[in-house]
Simulated assay, not measured.
Amino acid sequence: MNQKKTILHIIQNFGRGGAETAVVGVLKNLHEYRNVVVTLDPLNQFGDELTYDAYYCLNLKSYYLFPTVIGTLKKIIRKEKVDLVHSQLYWSTVLARFSVPKHIPLVTSIQASLTNSVEYKKGWICQLDKMSYRFRKSTILGVSEHTLMDYFSFLRLQPHDTHVLYNFVDTGKFNREPIPVMRKPGEPFRLVSVGNLKPQKNQQFMLDAFRLLKDIPVSLDIYGDGQLQETFERFIQMNNLPVRLMGKVNNLPERLPGYDLFLMSSWYEGFSLAVLEGMAMGKPMLLSDIPTFTEQADSTAEYFSLSNPENLAEKIRFLYQHPERLQEMSVTGRERVMRLYTLQHHLQALRKIYAKELSGR
């Protein structure tokens, strides 16, 4: 019987985000490998959902101190006889590039566009990424075509080996057959949005559009919390908007069926898990026309320009008046998710990448 190959998965922590959710889902199903997990700090918001064969926490008080644990990570790699390392997110990747021996394959997942990233506006962040990549080239997995191309063009690097590996939705939780839109005349047009309250998600644009929607019965619930909560609460109250900040909830799959339209106005995304979840639940999508959204949803969604809130307001009015388009998006969006963005699709592609990398050893 052949001994299992060992993969070391390194990530900053397990706060609930897209990258972390994907890793947890993969670890539950990648039984043909021995999985070692390394985190830079101990945060774990998944509890017992996180599974592994061995776990190490580097307990970094500050990510800026990553050079102090390069030796520790090298020792873990030797002790666990690691065959391949897969890194996620910025600081884990930089650390891995300076720690993983040249004879061990290194795979890196890129989760977001760099061009619009606030962090990458700091010159030294870019330089450290470029320097670490040149020091130790790794196989790059982009969560979308746009994210992959943007990484190399923004950093002005020559690609070494690249693949697109789309994120996936947990269809065990988010999976509902579309049902016909049955809104009664005069009944509110119920919109929902999901995302942390931070500049990237651009919820202020939605609020500005709702100031222009006094002529139709429409409401918006925003799920998520964050740094802009108080600012948004004041704006909603001052303008008497039909918008509620719902905070974070643990039962989103039970709540989504109560809405008519899923709305996102992000400035940029890697590959939005919230959008995939909404599509899997049969929710029609109204999205900002950024490259990753159009790659995700293609013709199964409606899009609006971020140049003027009036454009969004007009799209909402149009969809309020055309339930047949809502129904069409509901059906085709869910079909697209089930055809391209399930865990099974993700695992199939990831296994091929791992097999290719390990075949050279």
Results as ranks from 00 to 15, higher is better:
Ser92Cys: 06
Phe98Gln: 01
Pro105Tyr: 09
Lys61Tyr: 09
Lys75Met: 09
Ala96Phe: 04
Ile70Gly: 07
Val85Asn: 01
Gln88Ser: 12
Thr72Gln: 15
Val100Ser: 05
Leu60Cys: 02
Pro101Leu: 07
Thr93Ile: 00
Lys79His: 13
His86Val: 05
Ile70Lys: 09
Pro101Arg: 03
Val69Arg: 08
Val69His: 10
Leu84Gln: 07
Leu65Lys: 01
Ala96Cys: 00
His86Tyr: 00
Leu65Trp: 09
Thr108Asn: 14
Ser92Met: 00
Lys74Arg: 15
Val85Phe: 08
Tyr63Glu: 10
Ile77Ala: 10
Ile77His: 11
Leu60Pro: 08
Ile76Leu: 11
Val107Met: 00
Ser87Ile: 02
Tyr64Cys: 11
Ala96Val: 04
Gln88Asp: 04
Lys81Thr: 13
His103Thr: 05
Val69Ser: 12
Gly71Cys: 12
His86Phe: 03
Tyr64Ile: 14
Ile104Ser: 10
Ser99Leu: 00
Arg97Val: 01
Ser92Pro: 02
Lys102Glu: 15
Leu95Tyr: 01
Thr93Met: 00
Lys79Val: 11
Thr108Cys: 03
Tyr90Lys: 11
Lys81Trp: 13
Val100Ile: 06
Thr68Asn: 05
Ser109Gly: 15
Leu60Gly: 03
Ser87Asn: 07
Glu80Val: 08
Pro105Trp: 06
Val85Asp: 08
Pro105Glu: 05
Ile104Ala: 12
Val69Tyr: 03
Arg78Asp: 12
Tyr63Asp: 06
Arg97Asp: 10
Arg78Val: 15
Thr68Lys: 14
Val107Glu: 03
Lys75Glu: 15
Pro101Asn: 07
Thr72Lys: 15
Phe98Lys: 03
Lys74Asn: 01
Val82Leu: 04
Thr108Met: 03
Gln88Asn: 14
Pro67His: 07
Lys74His: 12
Val69Pro: 06
Arg97Lys: 11
Pro101Phe: 05
Leu65Arg: 09
Lys79Leu: 10
Val69Gln: 06
Arg78Asn: 14
Val94Trp: 01
Ile104Phe: 13
Ser87His: 01
Val85Glu: 03
Gly71Ser: 15
Gln88Gly: 11
Ser92Trp: 03
Tyr90Ser: 07
Ser109Val: 11
Ser99Glu: 03
Ser62His: 10
Val85Tyr: 04
His103Tyr: 09
Phe66Cys: 12
Lys61Phe: 06
Thr72Ser: 13
His103Leu: 04
Lys61Arg: 12
His86Pro: 03
Ile70Pro: 02
Lys102Tyr: 07
Lys102Pro: 05
Leu58Thr: 09
Val107Pro: 02
Arg97Thr: 03
Leu95Trp: 00
Asn59Val: 00
Ser92Phe: 00
Lys74Asp: 10
Gln88Glu: 10
Leu60Phe: 03
Val94Gly: 02
Leu58Val: 07
Tyr90Asn: 06
Lys74Gly: 14
Ser92Tyr: 01
Trp91Ala: 15
Val94Ala: 02
Ile77Arg: 11
Asp83Arg: 12
Leu65Met: 07
Val100Arg: 02
Val85Ser: 10
Leu84Trp: 02
Tyr64Pro: 11
Gln88Met: 08
Thr108Ala: 13
Leu95Glu: 00
Asn59Trp: 11
Ile77Met: 15
Gly71Leu: 10
Lys102Ser: 06
Ala96Leu: 00
Thr68Asp: 05
Glu80Arg: 06
Ser62Arg: 12
Val85Gly: 10
Leu84Asp: 02
Leu89Glu: 08
Val100Trp: 01
Ile77Gly: 11
Phe98Pro: 01
Ala96Arg: 00
Ile104Asp: 13
Leu84Phe: 01
Asn59Glu: 10
Phe66Val: 09
Ser92Ile: 01
Thr68Gly: 02
Leu89Thr: 05
